[in-house]
Design a protein around this nucleic acid. Sequence first.
DNA 1: GGACGACATGATATCTTATAACGTGCCGAC
DNA 2: GTCGGCACGTTATAAGATATCATGTCGTCC
Lengths: 163, 163
Amino acid sequence: MTAPRAEIARAEVMCRERGVRLTDQRRRVLEILCAAGRPVGAYEIMDAMREGPRVVAPPTVYRALEFLLEQGLIHKIESLHAFVGCDHPEHPHSSEFLICLECGDVAELKDDAVERSLASVTRESGFLPRRRVVEVMGICARCARKEECARKEEADRVRGLVD
Amino acid sequence: MTAPRAEIARAEVMCRERGVRLTDQRRRVLEILCAAGRPVGAYEIMDAMREGPRVVAPPTVYRALEFLLEQGLIHKIESLHAFVGCDHPEHPHSSEFLICLECGDVAELKDDAVERSLASVTRESGFLPRRRVVEVMGICARCARKEECARKEEADRVRGLVD
DNA sequence: GGACGACATGATATCTTATAACGTGCCGAC
DNA sequence: GTCGGCACGTTATAAGATATCATGTCGTCC
């Protein structure tokens, strides 16, 4: 995860170049997402935005999210109804995710083999793609290792009892 | 779209073979989805199920949907919060969809190049996939042709006015 | 045949996610 | 200075999903 600071700075530059405004609300939402480094739901973002007596209603959050999505600064994870900061917003790209069912961690794929194969399939059928949603749920390498260890220990334990 | 009848018959056989029960409610939901031939939301299904004074509550629908998903008889389209009957439930498969933003039509991809490239990417990173969500939104071939025609006619019209 | 257990459904309430609709304030262009 | 566009505030509500507990159905084992 890049430091939120750096991400915000990048976003500022990009917005200025494009002549769009990264307002306080929008920046705040982006900060929250970048700081979290994991998928965050709209209502959770809303809660994070209310510091003190400040009231923030759903439309405010959703508007900011819509803007950030349009600018490619964040992504929506459809299968989680949640949002994440984009790892590399500087060049437009596909958004493909590996989502760990165990720890909730989300990795953004950089590989474009998937993208290419999808492109060729759609082209063949005369379909004009606009937006792609590619999300793979499963167990991340780290959790898989952990589970493997746990299984081994369990086996050892049982063997010990039997012996 | 296969005739709903045929789909239901297939489902009956599959469930019997697996020793699970395709109950009335479950069959009804499957029928509705197959007959629609397009993505249908849970609440729309619920409405379709209430014929006459019959009351059907959300959990009933969701339970039936859960069962049908488990059995691979239907798919969920995450980006639409809707469900569709599966085109070829007889063999387990990936579910990849082309969703037309214009006419709402959904095509289930049969190609497995996408599947393979996704599999290789995940394998490399040690990720163990469980469920894949691949949904491409865009304009289907038919709507693209229609738009093309409309554009041409418009151009002709304008030329006519200018000449 | 009757008791039991597993599974399926009914019913109520509630939670989460998302959007509609309308009003206000800021700011730059002309 | 006013007009128009954009961002935001505010209220209400739509749309999607689940928790919880009660009831019913059906096969099986005795």
